[in-house]
């Protein structure tokens, strides 16, 4: 019983401290707790030519596309900005409860949508098959557990959760070797993925000094130290290049 009292006390303190430290919910009327981190990821050097995907191995996949499909392992805009970079606060100490809502990943036309996805420890990931053929969801984490589930039917859904933090979990389909997606699992919600213009915004970050990391499947990682103030907006522009 003694133990329980102590544990409860510790838990209570933790709860209280989290509540005061990180009210990450953001917009709360006029009082804004925390600030935002935003920026652009640039690509330095000559952008590689987009790599077309050959779907000849499965005619059903190919029939769902009217134009050439390109690999999303390096999506670089005309102004040399990089899409699908996962940007997150690397050294955030606190934790937050997982949001109730599920994050979804869809296999459509034998392509994963989206290509890069962030979610929280314990948060549900719902993977749906939008194709009328067999896909297998083969996650090959190094910290979390491997999973490999067959989805032979259109509309089939499977739910997964991850109990450990891990950045860069590859998900592949062995049936269609070009299909690849990356998952990033964090204990906190301070992450974003760059859009077509290489831009990202992480909002509601509790004030403090942090290391921000940008992660790309092909071009590796870049880090930067930033200072977030209440109501302020910190800038974090990255540039990546061929290794």
């Amino acid at each position: 019983m003694k133990m329980n009292v102590i544990t409860s006390a510790v838990l209570l303190t933790l709860c209280l401290s989290t509540a005061t430290d990180s009210t990450y919910a953001g917009n709360n009327g006029n009082t804004v707790a925390g600030g935002s981190v935003s920026g652009t990821v640039k690509f330095e050097g000559t952008a590689p030519k987009p790599r077309p995907i050959n779907m000849v191995a499965d005619k059903v996949c190919a029939s769902q596309h009217t134009s050439t499909v390109f690999s999303e392992d390096a999506v670089i805009s005309s102004t040399n900005t990089l899409k699908n970079v996962f940007v997150y606060i690397k050294d955030f100490k606190g934790t937050a409860p997982a949001p109730k809502g599920a994050v979804s990943l869809t296999q459509s036309g034998c392509i994963y949508k989206p290509h890069v996805l962030g979610l929280m420890v314990g948060q549900k990931l719902e993977i749906t098959n939008d194709d009328a053929l067999l896909h297998n969801l083969h996650g090959t984490p190094s910290v979390n557990k491997e999973f490999n589930v067959g989805q032979p039917k259109k509309g089939m859904k499977n739910e997964f959760t991850f109990d450990k933090e891990e950045v860069g979990i590859p998900i592949k389909c062995d049936v269609h070797p070009w299909m690849k997606s990356y998952l990033h699992v964090l204990k906190h919600p301070y992450f974003a993925v760059t859009d077509e213009n290489g831009k990202f915004t992480i909002s509601g970050v509790p004030a403090g000094t942090y290391t921000v990391e940008a992660w790309h499947e092909k071009y590796g990682t870049k880090t930067m130290t930033i200072k977030v103030t209440d109501g302020g907006s910190a800038m974090a522009d990255f540039s990546m290049s061929k290794k």
Binding site: H138, N148, V149, Q151, P152, K153, M156, V175
Partner: peptide
Amino acid sequence: GMSGTPMPSFESAINE
């Protein structure tokens, strides 16, 4: 299924 190979589990597929 068979871990470390492409062979997936068909448990949920069967339910479906």
